[in-house]
Design a protein around this nucleic acid. Structure first.
Lengths: 165, 165
DNA sequence: GACCTTTAATTCGAATTTGAATAACTCGCG
DNA sequence: CGCGAGTTATTCAAATTCGAATTAAAGGTC
């Protein structure tokens, strides 16, 4: 478990900066989403993940796997989103235990309205402050850390088309 | 407010990886601190910040500034830490409004017991997976992002000496 | 000194998070 | 079939978070 040595002051400083950046960034985003869309960050995450899945729907467990909350946390958030009419629960065909969460029409709309401003905030706080080289290096470092933590590569594309209607 | 363009898939992927890494890392640390010391990450942060201040004490506001919680959150956590005997509240000399949170003897001990394993976890999950070059680049990128977010440089040194007794 | 604005810290209620317990179901195996 | 182990999702209580309102005191101005 131990790794032998401690951390140098520089390593510790980097770690603290990482925590600080993550915290502040998260806080800013939370703020903006709340103001412009009445959504929390976890809620937006759920919508975005769903929009990225085929037909805009995903089983609870799959959703919990990629989203940043626990299983029970997801249940709660889906309930909230359902109250808001952005998502709907539907039984799973082949598995009577399963529940599928699906984006509603309103969910797609909300996401289309909300995504641009959100993405711009991410861009202006996380991307443009860095030089292209810095960003490339950051990507590489995060990929390495992510792989080491067992995080599945975050294959996500920008907002998809509306439902097949 | 807008920044013109959206995000490329690659940029979005990096962002998601960042969120994932931050979340998982935080979760691991939370877990370990809870198991080995019965502390939450915010609580550990408070102790660490105090230990890094002269005499192991800091005014509430200063502490709230560097710690990762809101003011009310800090009040709550200090109360918890006080119940655990690790911190003590003390009125501020020159300012009757102020409250100073000070590490107790037990607080110093707890931190000395807890810090090594914690630091090793940070090291093994955040530092050693990266090559020295990668880490250097990561530091640079985070510093840039932090500066852009108005985060004060995280000057922190490793665990200090016990109280001057 | 009285007054007003600002700052410090806590308290309050509402919303959210967590893990443990629960309920419902699948699957493999005898 | 029927049992037992493993999965899926929800529910529950407890702990934590946040922001708004509150209380108390400092600092400046007249």
């Amino acid at each position: 478990m131990a790794d032998g040595k401690g951390l140098t002051d520089r390593e510790l400083r980097t770690w603290r900066t990482f925590l600080g950046v993550a915290t502040v960034l998260n806080h800013r985003i939370e703020q903006q989403l709340k103001d412009t869309a009445g959504l929390s960050h976890p809620q937006y995450e759920v919508l975005a993940r769903l929009s990225n899945a085929p037909d805009g729907e995903l089983r609870m467990t799959e959703l919990a796997g990629v989203a940043l909350t626990s299983k029970s946390g997801l249940s709660y958030q889906i309930t909230q989103l359902e109250k808001a009419g952005l998502v709907q629960r539907r039984p799973c065909d082949n598995d009577d235990r399963g529940i599928i969460a699906a984006l509603t029409e309103a969910g797609w709309s909300k996401l289309r309205e909300t995504a641009p401003a959100h993405v711009n905030l991410v861009r202006s706080t996380f991307v443009t402050p860095l030089t292209p080289d810095q960003f490339t290096h950051l990507t590489a470092a995060l990929d390495t850390l992510g792989a080491h933590l067992g995080i599945t590569p975050q294959t996500i594309t920008a907002l998809r088309e509306p439902p097949p209607t």
